[in-house]
Write a protein that binds this DNA or RNA. Sequence first.
DNA 1: CATTAATCTTATCATTTTCTAAGATATGCT
DNA 2: AGCATATCTTAGAAAATGATAAGATTAATG
Lengths: 130, 130
Amino acid sequence: MPKSHRKAQTGPPEPIHRIKADFFRTLGHPTRVRILELLRDGELTVGELQTKLEIDSSGASQHLGAMRRQGLLDSRRAGTSVYYRVRDPRTFQLLETARQLISSHLEETHALLGELDDSGEAPRKVGTKG
Amino acid sequence: MPKSHRKAQTGPPEPIHRIKADFFRTLGHPTRVRILELLRDGELTVGELQTKLEIDSSGASQHLGAMRRQGLLDSRRAGTSVYYRVRDPRTFQLLETARQLISSHLEETHALLGELDDSGEAPRKVGTKG
DNA sequence: CATTAATCTTATCATTTTCTAAGATATGCT
DNA sequence: AGCATATCTTAGAAAATGATAAGATTAATG
């Protein structure tokens, strides 16, 4: 039915979906994904993470802070050091499911590349220019 | 050990983590999360999604395209309409795990709020200003 | 209290993402 | 072909995000 151009947003911005989107967006940075993987085997200090990630203290603090605010990480202080750890082990399950999804998409993509020589033409889906 | 400021990135930007981050970033928008939830019970046309989401065709196409490129969605054309569906059901498992993680964080946050009246002061974690 | 080490914060700028508007393509129909 | 509907693409403005640099806190130690 919708045919015309320009149609403005109307209702409230669906806060539930915004919360979920914020959660995923927090995971949407290579350094932050790496931090989670580094913390798979237990807690590490900011300094240790800094070294492994090869970033400065500002970057480390900012990324860690974002993930702590999002509830992904927990921290405790010991002297001048601060240890971070993953708060909920289900976070790793999430990462694993994501890995599977990405993996099967990559395989599919790879399979399609092979068909370029075989079955006549590229089996283009809608919107994929040939 | 690291004490000094400024330390530049050195090695390659870890493409594996970039790929994972891109995946999560694709999920990092309220409209895109909503699209996945709307497609939980099966495929819908762009026009149907447009109506339910109250967005214009440009926005719909852009979001759908991003998710199709990421391998989250699949599409098929039927006449002038295009039907979109979620490619892999594990995507819903991912959403469910995310929901659980968000939920338990919200509960924790809520519990902390309650303590403001009881146990003297706000039990501030590292870095939370009082 | 001064010093040092570790972490956090703020400000600014560059980059990326999203929104909006306009138009281009594709399909079906007469 | 000409027209209508649905979807996609592009371009530029606006908003959000990330990188960098400088400095502020916090805690331990002499």
